[in-house]
Write a protein that binds this DNA or RNA. Structure first.
Lengths: 204, 204
DNA sequence: GTCTATAGACGGATAGAC
DNA sequence: GTCTATCCGTCTATAGAC
């Protein structure tokens, strides 16, 4: 029986349910648009009970955003300088698109934050994010120096991978409106199109 | 002296100032995040005075969004079926990128709306927007049939143009964080990169 | 047309019983 | 740990004087 940290199973379960519900609500409504009542209801709790687990609405949001950037950048981190250049980049595109498909709420939570000026993660963007991108830009430029891929602006190459893949999560409703209904799955065609696009762009 | 519509110059000027201020605030904070006080202050008016010109916060937002989609789609509408295919598409990309550079607030207003499920413009997306895209998809496919550009999925081609160009307005802070400061102008390099990208993708 | 004052609703957070 | 009740700040919108 640990006294210092009485972390019961029910506590863990409720915390998890709150974060899950909060991801739903924040990603769909933004921070200001979301209400604690909505999150509590979605988590199956009363509002005061939710605030027993988290000190404030802000704290829930911060916890969600906190871990997000790291997992979001994992596919980029995985890009191997010693691999076959075109294959590494195409694999990155594929993984990033899979993340949009499998974790659209996380993508929209992030998008909401950035579009509104990233008030809560500006530091991480110019810190961890910039450092990782700078490192991978050097890798890509080295590949181009060696003549193994065509030379392109590596920063904008990375921007383009982000925007193209995240578009399918962030602008989901627009994609489905244009393609004609929620039953259409845009991802197979999107994947094929993007593989084709980057193959043609980068083949020397 | 017109009695039916006493549209004085000061009225026109105030209405314009309100819409201008509202674009600032809505695009930066989203609909829920914006307050009437902020908009009024930015327009140099008191809150009740603002509400003398517009019946509600919602009405201001609706008026801004209302005209937006049309002007936003103008560059696509301009794409000429009888022009030189690659040149038409590259020109569309160029104009769309210029719109991100010159009207970033409009882009972010739109992005805020779509990311949060487009509650106020869902109809226009599956109506006017879809119709125009369907039409241009037929044009692009005809170009591919004639062997004048490489065959790609035309819907995803259009999606990619949207996402790549709007990224520089919507994710502005992230772009500047990565490139290392607000004084960097990403647009010249972005334009060159995008022209290169679509040229390589579409050249038969 | 523009202001001060305020109504009325909502949302975040807390008190305190159980 | 969970609830009911409630406080208090904020926000939209209106009333009414000037």
């Amino acid at each position: 029986m640990q006294q210092s940290r009485p972390e019961t199973r029910i506590q863990q379960k409720n915390r998890a349910a709150i974060l899950e519900a909060a991801l739903d609500v924040f990603s769909a409504q933004g921070f200001r648009g979301a209400t604690v009542d909505q999150i509590a209801a979605a988590a199956g709790l009363s509002k005061p009970n939710l605030l027993y687990y988290f000190p404030s609405k802000e704290a829930i949001h911060a916890e969600l955003l906190g871990g997000l950037l790291d997992t979001w950048l994992d596919p980029l981190r995985t890009m191997d300088p010693d691999g076959e250049p075109l294959e590494e980049i195409l694999a990155y595109v594929r993984r990033k698109l899979e993340m949009s498909r499998d974790y659209p709420r996380e993508s929209r939570l992030f998008a909401n934050e950035i579009v509104q000026g990233a008030p809560r993660i500006a530091d991480e963007l110019s810190g961890a994010l910039k450092n990782l991108v700078d490192e991978k830009v050097r890798v890509i430029n080295a590949w181009a120096d060696a003549g193994r891929i065509a030379r392109v602006d590596a920063y904008h190459l990375i921007f383009s991978i982000w925007s193209l893949t995240q578009h399918y999560a962030d602008f989901d409703v627009q994609v489905h409106a244009v393609l004609g209904g929620p039953e259409v799955d845009p991802y197979p065609a999107a994947n094929e199109y993007l593989q084709q696009l980057f193959t043609r762009l980068l083949t020397p």
